[in-house]
């Protein structure tokens, strides 16, 4: 019989992740199964709920597959949040591969009831500001910055900025009204919400150094749905998920960086690359964020320090 997989996500249909990652994946499983297994994709939260609720929708079987960010549900996936720590991941490729391996080692407990098909981090996140150029940590002092994740919220606070949380669609309005002075985002997202038109300054970080921040994505499947598949279809899912899919997604995210950056250069915005020597200060200042993560893992009965080291090692291994 024919299997239809209901796939739900929050992006508009033409955004990068659904067209470049999800779409080809769906085409591939359809082709390999001779169209016996197909996706039915529902973009833009068409089936209802909030992006934060996607993870429960896939867990509860409301949908079969969800493409979302574990970080939207703060506090729920603290182990995998290690990849959202500041200055840890250095490219989407390395981050994505490392995240998948780390999940195999430490993450399965917190994803009980969910079958991850892919983990991926996005391209390096940078600082974008409206009126004040950020060259040093001192420049961040007192700036109201939109934080995209719980970790960046903590990072900004420890760097001396005032973190503000708001949904992404609200950012253009907020930055144009001065409700916020800037935001942290990777290049891929910026043109899709025309944010390059709202700011003048972009502060990137030394490319040899780890990224200021990245966020973690997940393609998650309902385990009961997976179990209900006949063996050959299960094999198709297995073949097309896990380390391979994660690596491919990371590569696509890295490749999307240039296209996302171009509109800002075309517009003549001002760019600055924060040098490694200055970044050392930032890393030092963000130490409490690490300590907190380690302490929380220790409290949960894990060896936080060891886990952090493993995450670093995996990232280093995958960097080559």
């Amino acid at each position: 019989q024919e299997i239809t997989l209901k796939v739900h996500h929050f992006w508009p249909p033409a955004a990068m992740p659904p067209t470049k990652i999800l779409g080809p994946w769906c085409d591939k499983i359809a082709a390999e199964s001779n169209n016996r297994m197909k996706c039915q994709v529902f973009p833009a939260m068409q089936l209802g709920g909030t992006p934060a609720q996607l993870i429960d929708q896939v867990k509860d079987g409301v949908v079969d597959i969800a493409f979302t960010l574990p970080g939207y549900t703060a506090g729920r996936f603290p182990v995998m949040e290690v990849f959202e720590l500041p200055f840890i991941s250095s490219s989407a490729s390395a981050g994505s591969k490392a995240a998948w391996d780390f999940y195999g080692k430490y993450g399965q407990k917190e994803f009980a009831g969910i079958k991850p098909l892919m983990f991926a981090t996005h391209d390096d996140g940078y600082v974008h500001t409206r009126e004040k150029q950020v060259k040093t940590m001192a420049d961040l002092k007192g700036l109201k910055m939109r934080a995209p994740t719980r970790m960046t919220n903590k990072l900004l606070a420890s760097l001396g900025a005032t973190p503000v949380a708001m949904p992404l669609p609200a950012v253009p309005e907020a930055v144009s009204k001065g409700v916020i002075d800037g935001f942290l985002l990777p290049w891929e997202v910026i043109p899709s919400v025309k944010l390059h038109e709202m700011v003048k300054y972009h502060s990137e970080t030394d490319p040899t150094r780890p990224a200021l921040y990245t966020a973690l994505f997940i393609l998650a499947m309902n385990p009961a749905k997976y179990d209900s598949l006949p063996a050959d279809l299960k094999a198709i899912i297995d073949r097309n998920s896990g380390a391979g899919l994660s690596a491919m997604a990371g590569k696509i995210w890295d490749e999307s960086q240039a296209a996302g950056r171009k509109p800002a250069t075309d517009r003549g915005n001002t760019f600055y690359t924060i040098p490694g020597a200055e970044l050392d200060n930032w890393v030092k200042a963000s130490a409490p964020v690490y300590d907190e993560w380690v302490a929380n893992q220790d409290k949960a009965g894990n060896n936080g320090k060891q886990m952090l080291q493993d995450a670093r090692d995996l990232l280093a291994k995958n960097r080559q």
Binding site: G48, Q53, G61
Partner: peptide, 14 residues
Amino acid sequence: DMALLNTLKGSAVA
């Protein structure tokens, strides 16, 4: 029925 009941868990908040 479970899909309906579960989707309704988040409807009001959403």
